[in-house]
Design a protein around this nucleic acid. Structure first.
Lengths: 94, 94
DNA sequence: TTGACATGCAAGTGACCACTTGCCTATGGT
DNA sequence: ACCATAGGCAAGTGGTCACTTGCATGTCAA
C-alpha cells in the first residue's frame, strides 16, 4: 500500500523527521537504535526510542522509508522518489 | 523578515494551502475574494474568508506569498523560490 | 455623507499531533 | 534454560493547528 500524496507533506512537516531523512541519506539501512544514537550525537535530537519509531511509521506511510526485517534487527531504507511530486508540483525557475 | 526553513514545510503541510499555491500558479495576483470564489468553484474547497486569510498569513510567513495593498484590495503574489530548499535538500535521481 | 464592499484583528473551540508510559513479543548469546 | 537485546503495541496527555465567531477598520461609489 503506497502512501497518499498528502502523507508526504505531513511527513515533512516535522523537523525530527526531516533530520531522520538527512541521516538516512548519509548512511542508509540503519536500525532503530543506530538512528537513535546518531540523531542524539550528531544532530542534537533528544527523542526517545518510541518517538523515533513513531516518526518512522509516518515516514513509512508516506513511502519515504521502507523497513526490512532481519532476525531481531529492522533496517530502515530511504526512498526519495515520492519527493519528486514536491519538486515538480510548483514551478521553480533554476 | 524572511521566514524560517521550518515555516516552509509547515506551510505545505495543509492541503488547502497547497491548493492556494496551485491557484496562484494558474493566476497570480489575486485578491482574497477572488481566491475564495475560485477555490470553491474549481477546487471544491469550502473554506470561509477568514480561514483562507489565515492560510495566506502562514504562506506569507513562509515567504511563499507576498501581499501588495492597493486601495481596498490586497493582491497576493506567489514566490516559489523558497521551495528550492525542498527540492535540493534530499537527492532525487531524475 | 451614507452605505456597501474588501479586509483586518482577536478570542474561543474542537481536533489532531508528538510524546510519554507501561507492557508485551521475539531473537540470539552464554 | 536464562536473560539481555531489539523492537512492537496501545492508552493517556499537553500543546499546537485550523476554523469559527464577532467586531473593527478602511475604501469607494452614489
Amino acid at each position: 500500500m503506497v502512501g497518499a500524496v498528502s502523507d508526504i507533506y505531513k511527513a515533512l512537516a516535522d523537523p525530527t523527521r526531516r533530520v531522520i531523512l538527512d541521516e538516512l541519506v548519509e548512511r542508509d539501512g540503519q536500525t532503530l537504535f543506530e538512528l537513535c544514537t546518531r540523531l542524539t550525537m550528531k544532530h542534537d535530537v533528544a527523542s526517545s526510542r518510541q518517538a523515533i519509531s513513531q516518526h518512522l511509521d509516518v515516514l513509512e506511510a508516506a513511502g519515504l522509508v521502507t523497513r526490512r526485517r532481519e532476525g531481531r534487527y529492522t533496517f530502515h531504507h530511504l526512498d526519495t522518489s515520492p519527493l519528486r511530486e514536491v519538486a515538480t508540483r510548483w514551478p521553480t525557475t533554476p
